[in-house]
Design a binder for these strands. Structure first.
Lengths: 210, 210
DNA sequence: GGGGTTATGTATCATTTGATACCGTCGAGC
DNA sequence: GCTCGACGGTATCAAATGATACATAACCCC
């Protein structure tokens, strides 16, 4: 698909006209449907994807268990790809579209030079590295020190804080995959929370009280 | 302490003469003794430390448990400080000198502009971000999916691979702190390994067999 | 050699987490 | 209505991990 200048209404991080021209010249737009797998573990990536609209979920997998690393929302890019693109490494995670998602694709060979030429690009990259690192560090601290029921609680609270809604549309199985555990464990913990009047459980969603 | 040009024999990453001059102009050398705490959780850092000689250990702590994040060796810098220095955040980990260590200290306000001016500096930063991220990701995967005895085994093998020695000078307690668990757990696992003829245990060190 | 400190061995017990199995319910689609 | 698959509840059991306690041994320093 062709790119239009409208793009930069959505990607405000890239302010320099020169950079915008470069992006228009080298970039492509990709549209992904819900459920499309965009990145696979072990795969070499020679492009950098920047989400314009929608949401990607990036996670690690081991046999039948998986664990969330982070989400990539609009104006963000994916750490795995960034590493791959700069250093020709392969990805160590999987990425899947959670909803219909529009992605700007930039070829790896152009972005290294932008790093020096365009301050806003540079800042974007550094910011991405830092925020992804912080997220991962937080997750690491949680999994190293906190019991699962606390992580569940924090997940729920994190959700309602972001979405401003007490109603969390997630199945027990999905929640288990976010936290790297199994469905039964989650069901048990949620049921306990319900007995403690902290939540109310429904099919397909969880209502957090007061 | 004053800086001399000799420095750049040890820090080969910084090749541009201009950058070297900048470093000479703004940098200071700090000497730390074994056990000196250089970074504390929550602390604001307005400088970036680059290790010249020696070793720093960076770890997270929670109550009486701790877990290793990474080591900072010669020619490397610390992720926490990097984040702090670029974004004026506070550190979310602790850093301590493991041996007598010499550190180049650069004030935070100068490094942001170097990022655009000096390609070798830029590369250094990106490389640091990437390798720290990869380390953390590996650690995260391990702790999420692998039982402790496997992590112990991998720690031992990682050590002998780096140090080319089958003799690992570490106490059970220290090893427990590297992996985020407790001494008794480590003793139990190592004893099991010994019964399986995989290692031989001594006071203060572990001998890995064949 | 004595005294204090650190390192290690080990037993016991509780708790957390995970694996397995089975069942009932709900909702979509026919 | 019926069927099928996803979802959730729950019981049972096993394994991993952690907490506590105590004993012994090695080492350091004086």
């Amino acid at each position: 698909m062709e790119i239009s200048v409208d793009l930069f209404k959505k990607l405000k991080s890239f302010s320099e006209p020169d950079l915008q021209n470069q992006i228009l010249k080298h970039g492509k737009i990709l549209k992904a449907s819900k459920g499309d797998v965009l990145i696979k573990e072990g795969q070499h990536l020679n492009f950098l994807p920047i989400v314009i609209k929608g949401l990607l979920r990036v996670y690690q997998q081991k046999e039948d268990r998986e664990i969330l690393l982070y989400y990539v929302g609009p104006e963000q890019t994916c750490m795995m790809s960034l590493s791959s693109a700069y250093f020709d490494y392969s990805s160590s995670a999987n990425g899947i579209a959670m909803e219909p998602t529009e992605i700007l694709i930039l070829p790896a060979h152009v972005i290294a030079e932008w790093q020096l030429k365009y301050p806003s690009w540079n800042k974007f990259i550094i910011k991405t590295f830092k925020s992804r690192y912080d997220e991962l560090l937080t997750a690491f601290g949680s999994i190293a020190f906190k019991p699962i029921h606390v992580r569940v609680k924090e997940y729920l609270h994190g959700y309602i804080k972001n979405q401003k809604s007490q109603k969390i549309p997630i199945s027990h199985l999905t929640l288990a995959n976010e936290l790297g555990t199994t469905r039964v464990v989650i069901s048990r913990i949620l049921k306990q929370f319900e007995l403690e009047k902290k939540v109310k459980l429904f099919r397909g969603y969880i209502q957090v009280k007061n």
